[in-house]
């Protein structure tokens, strides 16, 4: 885990272009960003703002066109596929919007999968604590199709937490859930930061979801245009509205990541 004071992840002058020449679309435009360890950071922005691209670059899922990405003290641009895969496996946890679980594995097997892939012995006590926190104890032997959407996302969160990664990336984790299940999942992400000391980065376009974070970064046109500490849903909503009023440009941009 990152030493205190040092950011869990860093992007330095990150640019990401899709296509080339005149038709090139800049999804990220020299973005400098630091993700503080032990905090819950939300990345917001309208469609096409580059928020998913930013997350993918920070998580080692995508390569920036220019700039550097640091996860802890590792710079990612020089890493090959093997090293990146190992980095994701050992140091990063993921929660996606949908389709987070392998249908053939039970909830428990899904949770321990990254550790199993790495060939690590699971930390029983930690696992028990995670399962306890996420209230999944009686669902461990179930297959994903036997679980509700909220339960499935909770299993995904548990999987992200199980390996005690340096960073957890959540990509619209509540996008497919009803508001109650969504609140539950967000609550667990919050608690994983508060009680388990995790670092969480969440991409969302839901102001309510963003309000669970410690810090909200606003992206527009591939740049970080604003930040909001200790946000409330109303404050976030207000900030988002300003995009719409100012609007137009972002909306007409192609949306490479969606």
């Amino acid at each position: 885990m990152a030493a205190s004071g040092e950011p869990a992840a860093r992007g330095v002058a990150l640019s990401k272009a899709y296509g080339s020449g005149d038709t090139a679309v800049l999804a990220l435009d020299r973005v400098d960003v630091e993700i503080d360890a032990g905090r819950f950071t939300a990345i917001m922005g309208p469609s096409g703002s580059g928020k998913s691209t930013l997350m993918h670059c920070l998580a080692g899922l995508d390569k920036p066109t220019a700039g550097e990405v640091w996860v802890g003290d590792t710079e990612l641009s020089r890493l090959g596929d093997k090293a990146l895969t190992r980095l994701r496996r050992d140091r990063i946890g993921f929660v996606f919007q949908a389709f987070n679980l392998l249908p053939t594995l039970t909830a428990e097997e899904n949770i321990t999968l990254p550790g199993d892939i790495a060939g690590r012995r699971a930390d029983g006590a930690w696992l028990a604590q995670v399962v306890e926190t996420l209230n999944l104890a009686d669902r461990l032997r179930h297959r994903p199709h036997e679980l509700s959407g909220g339960q499935q996302q909770r299993v995904a969160v548990a999987r992200a937490l199980a390996a005690r990664p340096q960073l957890i990336f959540a990509d619209e984790p509540t996008g497919n859930l009803d508001s109650r299940s969504g609140a539950e999942v967000l609550d667990f992400l919050r608690r994983s930061v508060d009680e388990l000391g995790q670092t969480v980065v969440m991409v969302t376009h839901d102001p309510n979801a963003a309000s669970y974070a410690d810090l909200v970064l606003f992206l527009a046109d591939g740049r970080i245009v604003d930040r909001l500490e200790r946000p409330t849903a109303d404050a976030v909503l207000e900030r988002m509205r300003r995009f719409d009023v100012r609007g137009g440009r972002q909306v007409t941009l192609p949306a490479p990541e969606d």
């Binding site: 596929d81 895969t85 190992r86 946890g93 993921f94 996606f96 999968l113 892939i117």
Partner: peptide
């Protein structure tokens, strides 16, 4: 395909 993407994202190597 999506499953494979997920597996790769959470750290399954190409060889695996």
């Amino acid at each position: 395909t999506r499953e494979i993407g997920l597996l790769r994202a959470i750290g399954l190597g190409r060889a695996q």
